[in-house]
């Protein structure tokens, strides 16, 4: 259980020699066990923010602290679920989850038990020895969630984890995630462009505005769980957040951002 605080966090990319502000002066304090959703239109830097917090990118201004300590690099105390499940196709379901425990201090017996426990948690008991090609998109994402949780991280980051799933599976997994969060009490930060998803899951919704990515507003969601998407209070909050996206942005060509590839110097 950890308190995560971001102080004046900023991030620049240089594109063709020009400095481009992706994130600017982000201040955010997340309580232990809180569920925070970060919403914003494409290109507002919300995924970049997660990459900074997980530690895949160390090149930023400001401070990111966990329990007062500045983060450096990746850590088993911070888990992540990517938009694409990123399971290794050559490993079975349980081996994929076990991959996250490669550098964990647990004994082999404990590892086995915790892998089984987490597969049970995401509802995949009985699929331990399946290969990723045998799984549907929703099942793959469940495995990815189990992999993200298996180290018992203080913070779990979710980078549009359900973005590529069909509507039915998505609603299903949102409810599952809600249940897992309640059961495990882990701090979760969800990046999404689905406002309804954010309203359904989060205690607070952080609205980012693009160019440069800044916090525009923080909307609390003081609704009890389980939330009803048709509840007028729910709809009111959702519409409130959606109104922040009201003015359509000027159409603009997208510039692919360069992805610095940290410490590993392979030929690719």
């Amino acid at each position: 259980m950890s308190t995560l605080s971001l102080n004046h966090v900023g991030k620049q990319y240089s594109v063709k020699g020009e400095q481009l502000d992706v994130l600017d002066d982000i201040n955010l304090h997340i309580q232990p066990g809180e569920f925070v959703a970060i919403v914003g239109s494409s290109g507002c830097g919300k995924s970049t923010l997660l990459r900074l917090v997980i530690g895949l990118d160390d090149d930023y201004r400001g401070q990111i602290r966990i329990d007062g300590e500045k983060i450096s690099g990746t850590s088993l105390d911070r888990g992540i679920v990517f938009q694409e499940h990123r399971l290794f196709p050559w490993l079975t379901v349980e081996q994929n989850v076990g991959l996250a425990l490669e550098n964990s201090p647990l004994s082999n017996d404990e590892k086995k038990r915790t892998i089984a426990g987490h597969l049970d948690l995401v509802g995949l008991k009985g699929f331990e020895t399946a290969y990723p090609y045998q799984l549907s998109g929703g099942m793959s994402q469940r495995v990815a969630i189990a992999r993200g949780l298996v180290n018992r991280p203080g913070v779990l980051l979710l980078d549009e984890p359900f973005g590529a799933l069909d509507a039915l599976t998505r609603a299903n997994l949102q409810a599952e995630l809600r249940r897992i969060w309640e059961q495990e009490g882990i701090t979760m930060i969800l990046v999404t462009h689905d406002v309804e998803e954010a309203t359904f899951l989060a205690d607070r919704i952080v609205v980012l505005q693009p160019r440069p990515g800044r916090i525009k507003r923080v909307v609390p969601v003081p609704l009890p769980h389980p939330r009803n998407r048709a509840d007028p209070a729910f709809v009111a909050i959702k519409d409130d957040v959606l109104s922040e996206f009201g003015h359509a942005p000027r159409p603009q060509l997208i510039e692919p951002l360069p992805r610095p590839f940290g410490d590993y110097v392979f030929a690719w």
Binding site: G55, T74, L76, L99, A100, E102, D263, Y264, F266, A267
Partner: peptide, 26 residues
């Protein structure tokens, strides 16, 4: 080796893999 998806290498970094682990497991 050159066409290994770098997304996999990122997963390996998230779980703190050393060079040898990255090589052997990914």
């Amino acid at each position: 080796i050159r066409s290994v998806n770098r997304d996999y290498a990122e997963v390996a970094r998230v779980y703190g893999f050393g060079r040898l682990q990255l090589w052997r497991r990914v």
